[in-house]
């Protein structure tokens, strides 16, 4: 395999947010996810915790966006194709100033702008409606193609689940994106190795990964492929640097992640895909995050 693994330096970069800041944001987003799902009494949790660092990195370190002008034509685009992780995106958008943090309490409620799956007609700042898996990469291809036709400088980022890669339409889009040499398009695979149910392993408890070697598959379709640790902000930044500057080919960032990341008793357990934490679960989970942020403050 000839994939690029960016050389990661843990150092901060001048003119960019401090890595410690990004890590603090991630902890805050995880808190908001847990609280919102608990309040709503519904929603997904493993996938949102898995994708948190990728979204924080995009919205606080990477994308050219303006919360005051969510429809600014030249903004960078983000499509959360694994739309069931909407609460992570809403929490990041709230911290970034697109909506009041208090509004997260309306997640999944009637008349809320924060629908169970992202609805671009409901909340400014959402670039595409998603929820039916496998569909997000194609509109991303359309946006990237549109940017090229308009001569607009924006970059389009699409976040895919690894389970979602089982959908055939992903590979239709992958083929066409490479055919049109869309260097202004990046697909990020949240590679946590777990779908919702999947195939059981012989032990009867754990599950098989939904897809093997996603990077190799994208490479075979003509993409530039970069791998990184999807929970390390320095590594994510380095991978996104490579993705954004690569020309002549779309890039796939395979981000190795852990489903349920940040809460020990949720990590790697497929049953936490969409389970609602009880008051007790919530208290334990928040306590773990408190410990993490205390450690962050000490370092």
């Amino acid at each position: 395999m000839t994939m690029t693994e960016p050389g990661v330096s843990p150092a901060d970069v001048a003119g960019r947010p401090a890595l410690a800041d990004l890590r603090r944001r991630s902890i805050e987003v995880r808190r908001l996810i847990l609280q919102s799902i608990h309040t709503a009494g519904a929603g997904h949790i493993g996938g949102p915790l898995s994708v948190t660092d990728l979204l924080v990195n995009l919205y606080f370190d990477r994308m050219d966006i303006d919360p005051e002008r969510p429809d600014w034509p030249e903004r960078d685009r983000l499509i959360l194709s694994k739309g069931h992780s909407s609460i992570a995106l809403y929490a990041v958008l709230a911290l970034r100033g697109f909506l009041p943090i208090a509004e997260l309490a309306t997640f999944d409620a009637a008349n809320s702008r924060l629908q169970g799956h992202p609805d671009m007609t409901a909340l400014p700042g959402l670039d595409m409606s998603t929820g039916s898996l496998g569909q997000g990469l194609s509109p991303g291809v359309g946006m990237a193609l549109g940017a090229r036709l308009r001569g607009a400088p924006f970059h389009t980022w699409v976040i895919l689940g690894d389970g979602e890669l089982q959908e055939g339409q992903i590979w239709e889009a992958a083929f066409v994106a490479a055919r049109y040499r869309l260097g202004n398009l990046t697909a990020i695979v949240d590679y946590n190795g777990l779908p919702q149910f999947g195939w059981p392993r012989a032990d009867g408890f754990t599950r098989e990964a939904p897809i093997e070697d996603p990077g190799g598959k994208f490479r075979a379709f003509g993409w530039n492929v970069v791998e990184c640790d999807g929970h390390d902000h320095a590594a994510i930044r380095a991978a996104f640097d490579l993705a954004e500057t690569h020309v002549g080919q779309p890039t796939c960032v395979v981000a190795r992640t852990v489903k349920g990341k940040g809460v020990s008793f949720m990590e790697g357990d497929y049953l936490w895909h969409a389970k609602v934490p009880t008051a007790d679960d919530l208290a334990r989970a928040l306590a773990e995050l408190d410990t993490l942020s205390a450690a962050e403050e000490r370092s």
């Binding site: 034509p73 670039d127 595409m128 496998g134 569909q135 990469l137 194609s138 509109p139 991303g140 291809v141 359309g142 946006m143 990237a144 193609l145 549109g146 940017a147 036709l149 308009r150 607009a152 389009t156 055939g168 339409q169 239709e172 889009a173 083929f175 066409v176 055919r179």
Partner: peptide, 24 residues
């Protein structure tokens, strides 16, 4: 734009282009 024999993607690409102001 030729999108090949891949209609699900064809409609999805059209949606993305429409968000950028094109009329596919």
């Amino acid at each position: 734009f030729e999108m090949g024999i891949a209609e699900q993607n064809l409609l999805g690409v059209a949606a993305g282009l429409a968000t950028v102001g094109y009329v596919p």
